[in-house]
Design a binder for these strands. Structure first.
Lengths: 166, 166
DNA sequence: CATAAATTATTGGCATGCCAAAGAAAACGG
DNA sequence: CCGTTTTCTTTGGCATGCCAATAATTTATG
């Protein structure tokens, strides 16, 4: 063992186990992983622009675009142009979308229950503290890390010369 | 706030921040997220079958297939049929693959450093304990959760009747 | 020993998620 | 007031990751 990156490894493992469980719990509700987060955000505050959602969920705008469209096709929410800002779209819940709330929250409660199983209150509080600290540390470090992260690709072709034109 | 699912929410946030940072750090090395885990496993123990890798990394075999092929095309590893088991493929590192080790481990050390920044040793140990506990709890709960997880789809067409044939 | 069952790898489909680029519309500047 | 810059959304490309189904081979079973 003697791993010098144990915390990172554990973060990866915890995340995958959590995702797998969430995927399973969400499936009977007809939702894919990630869609529930968008809905939760809308349950907390309805009628938001996609940009707001992207910011609140720390998601790429393009991801929000596609997930919102998927949820729209499922009839859980609505997209209509904003009147104040003619380039923004306002996302609103439908009755169907509101109706899903209880089930989704129940699923997430099971997830929470599983994660914290067998922990006394003290330990649960400590768990939350630790996670908050990790999140704070990582998001604090992100700007610096991203600054050193050059744009471009992994399989960098070096010089595209003429990257195809419309 | 008064969120009843704070831990789950934090797990999601920690995971995304971690992934984002890792993606950035790996990019200059020409690696995508996840590929480094496979390589790390091979650095620890070379010449493994894909099934072994899948099990060790808790990955779906099909994911291993594709990631391994990608790494093979980058010249970092080799795939050759096993002699004992004629259906298995043995994955082995190339010199190039071995040469990447230092850089990847350095990148992960930065990740680890960022995650644990400003924590005294005591707190680092506690962090690890918490993550181990979460992982243990979630993977312990997974079988039961998956048992209740019906196969089939989200947008279930109910009865496909004739799900198209080759 | 033949037959049923489990294992290994692959393919195709689908979803999330990122980045990069592009078109509209708004905010900002001189 | 016009030009520049920022913001909002979308599209296309690419990668990971899952599931389901298939083919080949091994192992277990009666």
């Amino acid at each position: 063992m003697s791993d010098r990156h144990e915390v990172s490894h554990m973060i990866v493992r915890v995340a995958r186990a959590h995702q797998l469980a969430a995927t399973c719990l969400l499936r009977p509700l007809g939702l894919y992983l990630g869609q529930e987060l968008l809905l939760m955000r809308l349950w907390e505050r309805d009628d938001q622009s996609q940009a707001d959602l992207a910011k609140a969920l720390s998601l790429d705008p393009s991801t929000v675009t596609r997930t919102v469209r998927s949820l729209e096709q499922q009839g859980l929410l609505t997209r209509r142009p904003s009147e104040r800002d003619r380039r923004a779209l306002v996302v609103s819940l439908t009755d169907e979308g509101r109706a899903l709330r209880d089930q989704v929250e129940h699923a997430w409660s099971e997830l929470e229950r599983a994660a914290l199983a067998g922990m006394p209150d003290r330990q649960r509080a400590e768990t939350l503290r630790v996670l908050r600290r990790l999140e704070g540390n990582l998001t604090a470090a992100l700007p610096e890390i991203r600054a050193a992260c050059p744009p471009g690709v992994p399989g960098d072709p070096g010089d595209p010369g003429d990257p195809h034109h419309p």
